[in-house]
Design a protein around this nucleic acid. Structure first.
Lengths: 210, 210
DNA sequence: TGATTTTTAGAGTAATTACTCTAGGAGTCA
DNA sequence: TGACTCCTAGAGTAATTACTCTAAAAATCA
């Protein structure tokens, strides 16, 4: 992610970039600001009574947002390493995200949608965050050909949601359990046609282990 | 990860590096070869009858190995982007890892340690891989200060194992369920003392939501 | 020991990249 | 129209980095 790339993505000249920003650190900081604000607003949005369907669509929105910033997330490690101040802000950001995520899962628990104790909720939350924040980079590495192909791109993102559902599945109760198969089918359908590698495609198993 | 860094890490001069390797791509390829061989050998190792305890120690070994290559994994995306041939090899590697992982989880199922259907097993496997392959980079980004601090470093790695246990917990049956609390305590103990941010530290919750 | 080969260091090169500087286009207000 | 400010492009600079080249140290063998 060079300044040339950024300038090109913005449709302006590399030199012009430095009229608007003092240095690359400022550009990255601004990007992070936009990204974190975007996500925090989504996370702060009042949910009302949560249903499983609403919650899944909600997560779809979240992952879509994060997907838009996947290039930022890909280079995040380097940015954080280069700029300790940013590292601190990011750390605080993740803490807020996790805290807010716990609240959301807590509401799902109150609504009787998931059945977890406090410790399980915490573990689930961290695993959800790992998945959400790593999925794009991971898939991007496995399918470099996907860059630019919008259909495939969206399909890979939906597979990410499917994986989150897999995380939550064992804890689901009541209404959620009824809708589970529909939900899985909804997000699995896409990934079966698109990713030949991340996972089991019927009739393509090489190990004979299933 | 510049060639200077690599040379320094090896304790040789930057120029000397190019006596042993033709170019940086070859260095990265050699690193990948070592890494993948290391992991595949671990994964091919005959397990015999699997118990939950053996399996957990086995995973500890896996994660320790991957932890040693965390710098490689951190820059993996860039390497894959720069070298399509390597990307293809990595793709194949991940397929084998996932296939072998499915076999291992399959054996756990045969032993009555976990209770999953085929689809859940696949979902669990992918989520385990995401966690294993992303944990180091993720934690490294959140705790840049951890670099060099061996105690903290190991503690963060153990937290990774804890998160894998959280993934599997809902599926555990029989013997495994009895040992669960011991196992969790074993890997949680370290992370409570070390990471103030990744997760809930008793008495430090800011949201009051629990 | 002396000849030959292997291995090493470190100065030097070409390319990339973050960043600067300057000249001028494009609005806005008189 | 003319003065003034805002914005833009693109050539140019300094630093980094992948990589080369050469001279010499270290190892091997007669």
């Amino acid at each position: 992610m060079t300044t040339n790339h950024i300038a090109e993505a913005l449709g302006i000249s590399p030199g012009n970039l430095y009229y608007h920003f003092r240095n690359k650190g400022m550009i990255v900081a601004a990007l992070f600001e936009r990204y974190s604000q975007h996500l925090l607003i989504l996370l702060e949005a009042p949910q009302g009574p949560l249903t499983w369907t609403i919650k899944t669509h909600y997560f779809e929105g979240l992952l879509t947002s994060m997907w838009q910033y996947r290039f930022f997330h890909r280079d995040l490690t380097h940015f954080l390493h280069a700029d300790p101040a940013l590292a601190g802000r990011y750390q605080a950001f993740v803490e807020v995200v996790l805290a807010r995520g716990r609240v959301i899962y807590g509401e799902l628990r109150s609504s009787g949608i998931i059945d977890v104790d406090d410790e399980q909720l915490q573990g689930l939350m961290v695993n959800t965050w790992v998945l959400m924040s790593s999925w794009a980079a991971l898939v991007h590495g496995l399918r470099p050909d996907a860059a630019g192909d919008e259909t495939l791109d969206e399909s890979l993102m939906r597979h990410g949601i499917y994986q989150i559902i897999c995380l939550e599945e064992p804890f689901l109760r009541g209404e959620a359990r009824e809708h589970l198969e529909d939900m899985k089918a909804r997000y699995r359908a896409a990934h079966d046609t698109a990713t030949l590698l991340l996972g089991h495609v019927p009739g393509l198993d090489r190990t004979g282990s299933e």
